[in-house]
Design a protein around this nucleic acid. Structure first.
Lengths: 231, 231
DNA sequence: GGGCCGCGTTGACGGAAGTCAAAAAATCGA
DNA sequence: TCGATTTTTTGACTTCCGTCAACGCGGCCC
């Protein structure tokens, strides 16, 4: 029995649609791995040596300038695929935000397997196209929205994305959730500074739009107001 | 004889790698079309009805807010693929920047054909992964670079991208080129205002880094300075 | 419990880029 | 060729957000 049989993302990740023989073969070239919060899995500009499926936890994809400025260019949740197949180097670092469990493959092994299994490549294509859509809508946010619009959009996105993972499976967006980001990381997602993020959070709290029970917890009190602010 | 036989992007677009029979079949479901400068080809949020290969010309991909702010989220050059296969709606509008020639397919026809031709899907996957890389590095620019870094990065990217299309085929980056963008469109690419773009251009001209022979023409006098400014 | 450390908040201030307005330059049609 | 229109540039002013600095709070270890 392969570990895929008990995998919680078996039917959502790109492995979905593979038959038992294929899963067995894929299982053979992959292995499970824990990544603890803060630990890097892939380095920017490094040879792209591995790719992975996220089983559990949240990871950030980042690019940095030489002088240390950082931009989070993507966030990977359970069932998401990370890494850069069919390429020499990966354009972003991948670092765990929470303790995470991933299913890793050497890039070469994965590339070979994928080329032999069109159904898998198709799933990967659909996923990549969807990620490109999401990334492009984030460009709108980075280029054209002001701080309060950015924060409102971010909170709504979080409430959608984190709803799926919680114990309540997809009963609409989460009203209350625990951010996988520090304030600095929120700033790195939105292209702001930590101070601006903090001020905007405080402002929303004072206006009664959200509640902040603890550093990482957010409760949305007035979703309509957030939607209006998000623009 | 199919029109693909004389297609200038035949060996660079996703059609590369298909054999004669397959090209014939693909040619059967597609048709060539002109798009004049300023004319839209695909509307944001509309049902994704068509996809296309760019044969000649340059097109912009944009997203807009309700109140009219616009962000250019991608630029399509000859041999690039545009549109959203395997999805209901496209997340960006596509509008021609210059007169352009494209090879269009109905999305349904294309989806069906692609699923039957793994080699084509693979090409599309490679292209989409590369586009995602490029988009992510653009997020860095939008989120973390200041106006002069943005302009410098933009000019270098233009000089690379436009080198390939000119009569001089890929002798390194172009030293002098004609922008396919108005000042407003440059602003929409970089997340700036037209006034800021204009001031930065003037500044670079005064510093002797570039020359501006006409509105659309740019000549790079000091590439090293641009690289340094781009950060 | 107390002190330390990292993270987050708040305040004061300045500057980069946005806004508004007008002049200048290029484009276009008659 | 000339005037009309659009695009770009330039200037004056404003504002949003970044920077710098101090403070507060919670967690953690001894």
């Amino acid at each position: 029995m392969s570990s895929c049989d008990t995998c919680v993302v078996r039917n959502r990740a790109i492995c979905a649609g593979l038959d038992n023989r294929e899963i067995e073969a894929l299982n053979h070239i992959g292995r499970r791995r824990m990544v603890t919060a803060g630990e890097p899995l892939i380095w920017e500009d490094d040879d792209s040596l591995l790719v992975a499926n996220v089983i559990e936890g949240v990871l950030k994809l980042t690019t940095s300038t030489e002088d240390g400025r950082e931009q989070i260019v993507g966030v990977a949740y359970p069932s998401d695929f990370i890494g850069r197949p069919f390429g020499q180097t990966s354009s972003a670092s991948v670092v765990a935000l929470t303790d995470a469990r991933v299913c890793v493959f050497s890039r070469n092994d994965f590339d070979r397997f994928a080329r032999e299994h069109p159904e898998l490549e198709h799933k990967l294509l659909e996923r990549t196209l969807a990620e490109l859509d999401r990334t492009r809508s984030w460009m709108m946010l980075l280029g054209r929205k002001n701080a309060s619009e950015k924060i409102a959009t971010f909170l709504l996105e979080m409430s959608d994305r984190l709803a799926e993972t919680g114990c309540t499976p997809a009963f609409g967006p989460a009203k209350r959730f625990s951010l996988p980001f520090s304030r600095q990381q929120v700033a790195d997602v939105l292209g702001l500074t930590i101070e601006t993020v903090s001020r905007q959070f405080t402002k929303l709290k004072n206006e009664g739009v959200i509640e902040l029970p603890s550093r990482r917890e957010v409760e949305i009190l007035n979703r309509g107001a957030l939607v209006a602010l998000a623009g």
